[in-house]
Nucleic acid binder design. Sequence first.
DNA 1: GACTTGTGCTAGTTCAACTAGAACAATAGA
DNA 2: TCTATTGTTCTAGTTGAACTAGCACAAGTC
Lengths: 117, 117
Amino acid sequence: MLLRVDPASTVPLFEQLAASIRMDASLGTLRVGERLPAARDVAASLDVNVHTVLRAYQLLREEGLVDLRPGRGAVVTERAANYGELGEAIPRLVERAKELGVSVHALTAMIRQEYTS
Amino acid sequence: MLLRVDPASTVPLFEQLAASIRMDASLGTLRVGERLPAARDVAASLDVNVHTVLRAYQLLREEGLVDLRPGRGAVVTERAANYGELGEAIPRLVERAKELGVSVHALTAMIRQEYTS
DNA sequence: GACTTGTGCTAGTTCAACTAGAACAATAGA
DNA sequence: TCTATTGTTCTAGTTGAACTAGCACAAGTC
């Protein structure tokens, strides 16, 4: 469970946090039922605000990746395993996109378009 | 060449415009050498600012999808064909993601992570 | 009962996105 | 060459999301 954050990036902090946790899920580092570190602890160690961490957690809850409750924390759900399956298909597509000279931006935008159509 | 925009969306207008044009490229609707409509015309018909349209055009230029010059407009480059090739792989991945219950947000974030790592 | 942890609220700051208007430069076409 | 077209560049103002901050509260754990 290694959380990193780049304050200089244009990507919002809470997005970076969520992405970092998703990555752990897709790599199998996160086991079902495991608890994420408390938001206050993460905030302290990364020197960001508690609300920012909680926003990331809430984003992951909306995605169904974690279960969130006061007193208990953020618990990883069964869906985390599904992220692992995508962990194989994604690198293939990304590699092909790079070969074709398609930027990250263009690639993600096309996917968003396809998904919501 | 159908350009649509949803002012209520949280996705920036210039992103939506660029995405709409990329989609045309991936569908083969845009031919190499073809000229996109003038920014002023698009702005007028969609009721957005000229700068917003031009920003979308400049984004596409950075991606190498169009060639941009005063007096001549935005001309589609050969790279547009490459976008068409991705048009096959993307739907497969998106469909799989939907089956696994992975949200658009999570999917695009994971791809961004993979691309920039 | 004491402690932990997410929830919810208010409030202030910063910055990207967007709009607006104008002058300018490069290109195309008559 | 002259004229209209079209992107480039600049300044400037508004709006809203992101982030920070502090506090009281509720739901769990031990």
